[in-house]
Design a protein around this nucleic acid. Structure first.
Lengths: 349, 349
DNA sequence: TAACATGACTATAACGTTTTCGTGTTGATA
DNA sequence: TATCAACACGAAAACGTTATAGTCATGTTA
């Protein structure tokens, strides 16, 4: 196996000590200009580049951060990763990605694999199973070991760390209010089970909006999808539930869906039932991804600025890392709210 | 800054040597069962876990692989990453992601950032700019330094490394032939400029299919999109070009698009022009992503099995890494072709 | 001319492991 | 009672760096 050039090799060939080589490459004033030039020339010739692993060991920091997400085949998470990469790379950090596949044990395993020195800190969005179990031991353990953590999107108060969140309730309230302003009278919501924090919060926003308009919520109009299965796999199931909703309540004239898949599928079902969008039924989704943009009609949606979230999360994390390394007393914990925007398109009037 | 438990600490507190602790934790027969038990108990108490960086330095391998892709907000690449993660994690490898954003210099920088010891090998799909420049120096340099490389999807013959490719031409030929079999007479293709290898190859397949049916290709029906801009940004431009095509040739009754975005936008434009799909116009895309699945009508498409590609790429790479470490003579270079599948949906008859 | 500052290096420890090669204490053997 | 395994452990080198603390000629100063 061919091996990379090291300081030792340079030193031997140039017949000086390792220290001299190291210092020369760093333009140390201790070294004569003559030797500096010689060393540098030779280093370039042999294409020397310092071994990062050795540096990591010496400096006790790896300059890489780990991001653990439930699923990468998901526009939102993908945007967040992009944001994290942007900021991290600009600061000289690398990004290592772990996928939990919505599974608790995968999340734990992935984190353990990285928490043994491979990374300086974590950016995390919990798996669905973790939320259900409410078992946060691996997070607190991490914090106990002094590894900084930033959570985003799927966050939970119990964990004392920095957080980046979307104002889910507010985004949902504005979406629902918009539906109301545009004349909808009977608005259904397609949401998740309550253990999914974002679903719960968005449902809350929906209820708040109804309240503001003095409308009593109807249990029948709140469809809580049990997505124990992965998205792709239970499409028919999802369609069936929505079909039932629309058939039982043909006078529904507004739908707020807590993600873009639910919204798009709702539109599809509506089309099958020959319900005109936005004429008879207006639809608003959450997450401004590919589906929303290219659906027909294009979907009005709440955009959550994933890239900005990623950047912010990376910023918070790197700040903590520096704090830790330089032994700065430590700022109080921050929770940054990234506000949403409503993007009006053709699924509303 | 709080520090992690090390062998040294365990040794001091247990009043034995570091070697003893190390050996005890590995159940070395040199150590008495008594001490083994004691050491292990204490290690568990202090939650000791070996420092990965130190191990990497010692073993001269990091057990992580780098994947460099042009864009992460892209269903196909996302699937590939997933496949890579699957296989890599199962083998105890971590995955570090670098994004080139289709830029040559980003690609180079990213690779240099990782090629200094941070990773054991690369999995790469070239940026568009790299393909245009045809400057592959950073790849060959990498290989010269003995870092194994596996390219996928956007590959090029000049580089002597393992490759994982889609049979683009064949997939395109089958798609076009299917259009012909289903009665289309005048088939247009929406493709990329020729420097994008996959676009070029898919165009080739299209031409082959026409040839097999004794149809002379018409230059006018071959729309080569210049996607110097990023996808999202030039949608109107894209739409305009397709609109022009359909207006100039109202008798086009089949479209083969080399990616799903082009296909979906084509359907959108057709709808605007009140062309019935699949009645008057049949459409087939490439890449089986979200858009295809949820378009209306759902898009018939060539699926390229991104996840399988990722898994294969990881397998090839890890094989090379092991070869290198164990100094095995080195197998001849392999190029694996992942065959495509045509998924029939409602945009064709 | 003895003391001392300067310039230009080198030696060494340290980061946290693993592993090879000792080393000292037993108990058995001849 | 020497000799020798077997046993249980320790010392030290190595992976590739950096930083601190020497070292040793010079040249300068009082």
């Amino acid at each position: 196996m061919k091996k990379r050039t090291t300081l030792k090799q340079l030193a031997k060939e140039l017949d000086v000590s390792i220290s001299t080589v190291s210092k020369a490459l760093k333009n140390s004033p201790e070294i004569s200009q003559d030797t500096i030039d010689k060393v540098k020339a030779f280093a370039k010739l042999l294409n020397y580049r310092p071994n990062n692993i050795a540096l990591s060991l010496k400096n006790r920091k790896t300059k890489t951060i780990g991001i653990i997400i439930p699923d990468i085949v998901h526009h939102f998470f993908t945007k967040v990763i992009k944001g994290v990469e942007n900021y991290a790379n600009a600061q000289g950090y690398n990004v290592i990605v772990g996928l939990s596949n919505e599974s608790f044990s995968n999340e734990v395993i992935n984190m353990e694999m990285l928490a043994n020195g491979s990374i300086d800190g974590f950016i995390i969005s919990m798996s669905r199973e973790t939320m259900q179990r409410q078992d946060y031991q691996h997070f607190t353990e991490c914090l106990n070991e002094g590894i900084p953590l930033v959570m985003f999107d799927r966050i939970v108060n119990e964990i004392p760390c920095d957080k980046v969140a979307v104002d889910d309730a507010k985004g949902a309230r504005i979406a629902t209010e918009t539906l109301l302003e545009k004349g909808a009278k009977k608005i259904a919501i397609i949401t998740t089970k309550d253990y999914v924090s974002v679903g719960r919060l968005r449902t809350k926003g929906y209820l708040e909006a109804l309240g503001a308009y003095d409308i009593n919520p109807t249990a029948d109009l709140i469809l809580k999808i049990d997505d124990d299965l992965l998205y792709e796999d239970h499409l028919e199931n999802l369609e069936a539930q929505i079909r039932k909703l629309l058939k039982n309540h043909p006078d529904i004239d507004g739908i707020f869906a807590v993600n873009e898949l639910y919204a798009v599928v709702a539109m599809k079902v509506a089309k099958e039932l020959e319900i005109d969008i936005p004429g008879q039924l207006q639809v608003i989704g959450f997450t401004d991804g590919m589906l929303s943009k290219h659906a027909s009609p294009a979907l009005t949606t709440v955009s959550q600025h994933g890239e900005a979230m990623g950047e912010k999360a990376a910023e918070l994390l790197i700040q903590r890392i520096d704090e830790r390394v330089d032994d700065i007393p430590g700022q109080p914990l921050k929770t940054t709210i990234i506000s949403t925007d409503l993007i009006l398109r053709n699924s509303t009037k």
